[in-house]
Simulated scan of single mutants.
Amino acid sequence: MAQNDKKSNKSNIILYVAALLLVIWIAFPIYWMTNLSLQAEKEIYSVPPYYFPPNPNINNYWFIFDIEAAVKYFLEQGMSLFLFIPGSIKEFPRAIINSVIIATTVMGYNLIAGMLGSFALTRIRFKGAMPLFYLSIIGRLLPPVVIAVPYYVIIRSIGLLDTLVSVIMVHIMFTMPFTIWILNTYLLGIPTDIEDAARVDGYSYFEILRKVTFPIIKPAIVAIAITSFMISYGEFFFALLLTKTAASRTIPVIIGSAMSEPRVVKGLICAMGVLAMLPAMVIIILFRRYLIRGLVAGAVK
């Protein structure tokens, strides 16, 4: 018995150490980005580096919204000869709005269409339900590069290139299969007794979905909402391919464009990264309980 307890304790210690290393691996880049965003540019280039900001300030965050102040500051510091302030930083405030609009629209469409589609596939008997389900998720298995050119040609031919609508359409195409898959798994694990009783009482399919099924699958709905928002908010490849101007560019495109510049101001880039991360982090922190329940409940039931 004592030997079993020792083995169990050793196993727990190994698991805790592995979990701690994983947390450090994930959290350290976020910490380091935040640390650099609060330092002056001279402090960022110091050797050895500062693991904590020696003189914390929010100048880099202010400079994102006031480029003229940034130029004036670096001229006064005598650093303008070897540093470059990307012009794309001017587009960052607009990019935040674009990203939120796109991600929110994609999330709303996923909730409505995904819930209706999954309910129909799992609760309404009709021929071809399973082939239709597999057809709906097979598109997600294809690498984005494979379908990039066809999508670009189609969107350009209908005059939607460099618009928010084009990005929304492609993001829906990528997130909808995941939505249908998760909701299908969740719905198939829920007994239909209550729904059958409601049908006997004269409820229509829509009333059953709204009054009976929806309250039960609410954790999965929240999980789908957060996941689809996150996927759309952070998507880079198609957002870069389909947008050309500040009117439609998203946060990942703006940050990627700024990072590609030579001798870029690292503090500004890190501040942009922190600001870009905030909306997603706030959503995850507020709804983390529902996110975990929604993603695992379908497999547990």
Rank of each mutant, 00 (worst) to 15 (best):
A297F: 12
A239V: 04
P54I: 00
N55L: 10
R289Y: 08
V167R: 06
A197Q: 04
K6G: 09
W62F: 14
S99C: 07
A148W: 01
P29I: 01
F52P: 06
V212A: 01
N98I: 05
R199L: 13
Y31L: 07
P53M: 02
N35H: 03
A148E: 02
Y31Q: 04
E207R: 15
A40S: 14
L75K: 13
S46T: 14
F84Q: 14
V106A: 08
F214S: 11
M169S: 12
A198D: 03
Y73A: 01
R210F: 15
E195T: 03
W181A: 00
E76Q: 06
F52V: 07
F237R: 06
A27S: 08
Y205N: 11
W25H: 10
I154T: 10
D193S: 06
L275F: 09
K72Q: 11
G202T: 09
I158Q: 05
G128L: 03
T163Y: 12
F236H: 05
S232C: 02
V296R: 10
D162K: 08
D193H: 09
L291H: 09
S37W: 01
A297T: 15
A299M: 15
I124V: 06
K42M: 13
I85P: 11
N4P: 14
P29Y: 00
I30K: 06
T175S: 06
P252R: 13
G234I: 10
T213R: 08
I89R: 12
N184F: 07
V23S: 06
L121M: 01
K90P: 15
A70C: 08
G273Q: 02
S99L: 05
N59T: 04
S136A: 05
Y109N: 13
S157V: 04
T104E: 08
P252H: 09
F92A: 00
N55Q: 10
Y186L: 09
I44L: 02
G139I: 01
G108K: 05
I64L: 06
G294M: 10
D66M: 03
Y205I: 04
Y45S: 11
F92V: 07
Q77H: 09
D201P: 12
L241E: 03
A40P: 14
G159L: 13
G108C: 11
P49W: 00
N9R: 11
T243P: 02
L161F: 12
R210M: 12
S166Y: 03
M79P: 03
L291G: 11
F174N: 08
Y45T: 10
M272T: 00
M176R: 02
Y31F: 00
Q39N: 03
L241M: 00
L241R: 04
Y45V: 10
A220K: 00
F178W: 08
M107C: 11
K10D: 13
Y203I: 15
L295C: 13
N60Y: 02
V100L: 10
M115Q: 15
I190M: 08
I89H: 08
G273P: 05
A120P: 00
F65Q: 00
I285W: 12
L268N: 02
Y51S: 03
S257P: 02
N184Q: 06
L240I: 09
M272V: 00
I154L: 13
S46P: 07
R288F: 14
K218P: 03
D193G: 08
I102A: 03
V146E: 06
N184T: 03
G78N: 04
P144D: 07
K244E: 12
V200M: 11
E195F: 00
S99R: 04
P56C: 02
A258G: 04
L81K: 15
L291T: 09
T104G: 10
V282K: 04
V71M: 14
L295T: 11
